[in-house]
């Protein structure tokens, strides 16, 4: 349903696959994927063609500008790029500027972990600073949310760092520019075990969706449908 809705908005195939997958991940793990879609809907309607600009690139790192697009649609781009930058003994590092709904970086991190990378990420949405960490081949990350302090950035941004297990000494992590999780100021914390429990609950009992969000998604999905005619029925083998 989600895929068809984003396809109905006019997304490219890879983008509607990624966006639906990210939203579903957030929903199944208790982070409000459907609410995020609902909130992001006007922007998703506007940014139907993914356009992430490469601002700068240097060995092992890049800065991207999402142009205020949702991380639902561009999170996977970051995952792919950061994995491509991580060398056998070095980190890959991607900064994504002007990107909204940054919690959607989490499913992108899971995809990096699935490819055998440790991943650390930090993002701010102007009210909070979020930290996340996942070990290579793990299915669930650690997630922490902190109140934003100091100067509020002009636009939200995310920083993702990935490295092969053993490729990075602990002291080198400090140079990533990402704070280590576990700070006492943490407002909300979700452990990998809690994520697993949330996911298992969603799989066991299913997901529910409110009628107004369902109506929005259904209306978009309807865009891919073709009116039936007598001639079209012949196209089903009648």
């Amino acid at each position: 349903m989600l895929k068809r809705s984003f396809e109905g908005l006019g997304f490219n195939q890879g983008d509607y696959e990624d966006t639906a997958s990210a939203a579903l991940w957030l929903e199944c793990h208790g982070l409000g994927g459907l609410d995020t879609v609902r909130r992001a809907w006007p922007r998703l309607q506007k940014h139907t063609q993914l356009s992430v600009a490469l601002v700068t690139e240097s060995p092992g790192s890049a800065v991207l500008d999402a142009g205020n697009a949702s991380a639902l649609i561009c999170g996977q781009i970051v995952a792919d790029l950061v994995c491509s930058y991580a060398g056998p003994a070095s980190t890959g590092r991607v900064e994504l500027r002007s990107c909204l709904d940054c919690d959607a970086v989490l499913p992108a991190m899971v995809s990096c972990a699935g490819r055998g990378f440790n991943v650390l990420a930090q993002w701010n949405d102007q009210r909070f600073v979020c930290l996340a960490q996942i070990d290579a081949h793990a299915a669930y990350p650690l997630f922490e949310r902190y109140p934003a302090t100091g100067a509020v950035p002009e636009t939200p941004s995310a920083l993702v760092v990935a490295w092969r297990p053993g490729a990075l000494a602990a002291q080198d992590l400090a140079e990533t520019g990402i704070a280590a999780p576990g700070n006492a100021a943490c407002q909300a914390r979700i452990t990998p075990d809690e994520f697993r429990d949330r996911y298992d609950g969603a799989v066991m009992h299913g997901l529910s969706i409110d009628t107004s969000t369902l109506a929005i998604l259904t209306a978009a999905a309807d865009n891919v449908l073709v009116e039936a005619t007598e001639r079209s029925r012949q196209g089903a083998g009648e």
């Binding site: 490219n12 195939q13 890879g14 983008d15 696959e17 990624d18 063609q49 993914l50 356009s51 992430v52 490469l54 991207l64 996977q76 781009i77 792919d80 790029l81 994995c83 491509s84």
Partner: peptide, 18 residues
């Protein structure tokens, strides 16, 4: 170049690349 960079420049190819 690496495939990830090509996919960034040609986002419409992302699905078929995968």
């Amino acid at each position: 170049c690496r495939v990830a960079l090509f996919a960034l420049r040609q986002p419409a190819m992302r699905s078929i690349l995968r």
